[in-house]
């Protein structure tokens, strides 16, 4: 049985270190390899993993993850299979696994049914980039997730104004995901210049732990996040690392946390 996101964040804090969150697209390159990758990530000591449900039109994702989504769908991966895989994985590891995806997947499944199925599968939270807080009065997704004690991770961007930071702080649960730059997911060689000021501003208004993602790819990036954030999110950078090299890469990255 896996820990909750908040429990894992407490451990990170007690160990006075940075957390590392990684990401997989379920079914890319295959459901079987997804399973092996998640197990390898957990064994390498990462603190949590985002399990992305593939979707045809992933608005917030750059070319690498978009391609992975499309390949998984072309191979016939279904939401049901993703939930089954998630259930096997949450039983096998003790770190929290979260579901990341797009809102139409949930809407089409039925919001309540999806939250229940995720809870049954041992999922510990959701990140849904195209379901902003402002649509909640029409959707009741956050409310249903809260009833199941599952946090919906809020996203913040460098464009988020202060009043919106305040609003998000009121409703956020577990942690807040800070998108590091303008644009979509994808590995970059350097971190954006404004990152320090941006994260300090967010810190002023947001009390929960901060995860930082979009473009984090090297041990150097992770070092740079010490003292600024609580969790580093590594997504696209690991997507096409072979299973054989994954453990080594993760060990190098985790050594800097």
């Amino acid at each position: 049985m896996s820990r909750t996101i908040s429990e894992q964040l407490t451990i990170i804090k007690q160990q006075h270190r940075l957390g590392v969150m990684t990401h997989v697209v379920m079914g890319y390159p295959s459901l079987h390899e997804t399973k092996q990758r998640v197990l390898a990530m957990a064994a390498a000591g990462v603190d949590s993993i985002e399990l992305q449900i593939p979707f045809s039109d992933p608005l917030a994702d750059g070319p690498a993850i978009t391609k992975a989504n499309q390949q998984a769908l072309a191979a016939g991966v279904t939401v049901q299979q993703c939930l089954q895989l998630a259930e096997q994985l949450t039983r096998a590891v003790d770190i929290p696994l979260q579901c990341i995806g797009y809102y139409n997947t949930i809407h089409h499944f039925g919001v309540q049914q999806f939250v229940q199925a995720s809870q049954a599968a041992g999922i510990q939270g959701f990140t849904i980039p195209d379901m902003p807080l402002t649509e909640e009065p029409y959707e009741h997704f956050y409310a249903l997730a809260a009833q199941a004690n599952l946090p919906v991770i809020q996203l913040i961007s460098p464009a988020t104004p202060i009043e919106r930071l305040r609003l998000i702080n009121q409703h956020a649960q577990a942690m807040v995901y800070c998108v590091s730059r303008f644009g979509v997911t994808g590995a970059h060689t350097t971190l954006p210049d404004h990152l320090i000021t941006y994260l300090r501003t967010v810190r002023q208004y947001v009390t929960l732990p901060l995860a930082v993602g979009f473009g984090i790819s090297t041990p150097k990036h992770i070092r740079a996040l010490h003292g600024l954030a609580d969790v580093a999110v590594i997504g696209s950078a690991l997507l096409n690392v072979s299973l054989e090299n994954l453990t080594q890469q993760l060990t190098n990255l985790c050594a800097e946390r």
């Binding site: 608005l59 917030a60 809102y103 980039p129 195209d130 379901m131 902003p132 402002t134 649509e135 809020q154 996203l155 913040i156 961007s157 464009a159 988020t160 104004p161 919106r164 998108v179 303008f182």
Partner: peptide, 8 residues
């Protein structure tokens, strides 16, 4: 229904 980045 857009990412936070586009809301402002």
């Amino acid at each position: 229904y857009v990412p936070e980045l586009l809301i402002p």
